[in-house]
Amino acid sequence: MPTIFNAEAAVCLGRDVLLHEADAVRRAADRIAETPDFAEAVRLIIGCKGRLVVSGVGKSGHIGRKLAATFASTGTPAFFVHAAEAAHGDLGMITKDDIVLGISYSGETNELLMIVPTLKREGATLIAMTGNPESSLAKHADLHINCHVEREACPLNLAPTSSTTCTLALGDALAVACLSAKGFRKEDFARSHPGGALGRRLLIHVEDVMRCGEAVPSVTPETLMLEAVREITRKHIGMTAVVDHERKVVGIFTEGDLRRLIERVGDIRNVKIGDVMTRSPHTIGANELAAAAAKQLEQFQCNQLLVTDAEGRLIGALHMHDLMEAKVI
């Protein structure tokens, strides 16, 4: 079959496909307000004592796998079962407390229809998502969600395009509605994504990454500059905290401050650090999110933060590199 490429025609067709699929989703958005089934499906799913089992074959199966993953990551225990595998033993995964979301655009997929009697006998709730409310699957279901489209975006009206997009969007709408109804928060999402960037940002606290104990440089205001420089050098964090006799932070002195002091004074041997320190330095609490520390570093354009307790006593220190190693930034 000869290939004829025309850039202008390709862009025009691509745009038409996107507009066609967007229109299909918009029509679906209008349609869910016309029947109570969408809201009822949300009510059933959030009240489910078991799990949400998503099933389908072909393109509907691919969509189903994605939807099961979306539900699972947003607070609704869910998994995918291929309808053909269900008929060959995997039905044992489904219990009477579960809800089955069966996806078939035609509503006549043999593999799904074959397992419906067993689901009914078991007592599981069946929610059908089809493009035909009069289909066999829709009629046997406890609830039906209509994903009908006027035609596919494919010029031949054959390849599942608008229909799969509409099905995916409706499934996402269900998942997000359930998420909201359950009061699902960012922190809950992070707990199911501990390996991702969001999980690190929402689960890692300053106390998890800060330097503490002997690794934290500190001197008193009476400390002479050369000893303070030795403390900075020993602790490898590019600064030292200045604390009073109760370990309360009264200042900070950085390597940058040292360079500027030498340029201005020259001989620094008799200089007390309390006379040249930066007073009222930026601090953060150990229970704060590490992401909040990163935001402070960016806001104040500095590389280090002192960590203090509720009374202002020094308990740790944090360098930008510590946040980078923890992949918070």
Rank of each mutant, 00 (worst) to 15 (best):
P2C: 03
I4F: 13
A9S: 14
A9K: 15
V11Q: 03
V11D: 11
V11K: 05
C12G: 10
G14E: 12
R15Y: 05
V17S: 14
E21V: 11
V25I: 15
R26D: 11
D30A: 12
R31W: 06
T35P: 00
D37W: 12
D37C: 12
I46G: 00
G47I: 08
K49F: 07
R51M: 13
S60E: 02
G61H: 01
G61W: 04
H62A: 01
H62Q: 08
L67A: 07
A68C: 12
A69L: 05
T76A: 08
A83D: 00
A84H: 05
A86Q: 01
D90S: 08
L91H: 07
G92L: 00
G92K: 01
I94M: 05
I94D: 01
G102V: 02
I103T: 06
I103F: 13
I103H: 10
S104I: 09
Y105W: 01
S106A: 07
N110M: 11
E111D: 03
M114V: 13
I115T: 02
V116N: 01
T118M: 11
L119M: 10
L119H: 09
K120P: 04
R121Y: 00
G123F: 10
A124G: 06
I127M: 04
A128T: 03
M129P: 02
N132D: 09
N132G: 08
P133T: 09
E134T: 08
A141V: 05
H144K: 09
N146D: 15
E150N: 14
E150T: 13
R151K: 15
R151F: 00
C154S: 13
P155V: 10
L158Y: 02
P160R: 01
P160T: 14
P160E: 03
T161I: 05
C166W: 07
A169W: 11
G171F: 05
G171W: 01
D172N: 08
A175S: 10
S180P: 00
G183V: 08
R185F: 00
R185V: 06
K186S: 11
E187C: 09
F189P: 03
F189Q: 04
S192M: 14
S192F: 15
P194H: 14
G196H: 04
L202M: 14
H205S: 10
H205V: 07
H205C: 03
E207D: 06
V209R: 06
V209I: 15
V209E: 12
R211S: 07
L224S: 02
L224G: 09
M225Q: 00
R230C: 11
E231P: 05
I232S: 01
H236G: 04
H236Q: 15
I237C: 14
T240V: 09
T240H: 01
H245T: 11
E246F: 14
K248R: 15
V249C: 05
I252L: 13
I252S: 09
T254S: 03
I262K: 04
E263W: 09
V265T: 14
G266V: 09
I268H: 10
I268E: 08
R269D: 14
V271Y: 05
V271E: 10
K272L: 13
V276E: 05
T283N: 12
E288R: 08
K295G: 04
K295I: 00
Q301M: 10
N303K: 15
Q304R: 08
A310E: 13
E311S: 06
G312N: 07
L314Q: 06
I315Q: 01
I315G: 05
H321Y: 07
A326S: 07
K327D: 02
V328L: 12
V328K: 07
V328N: 03
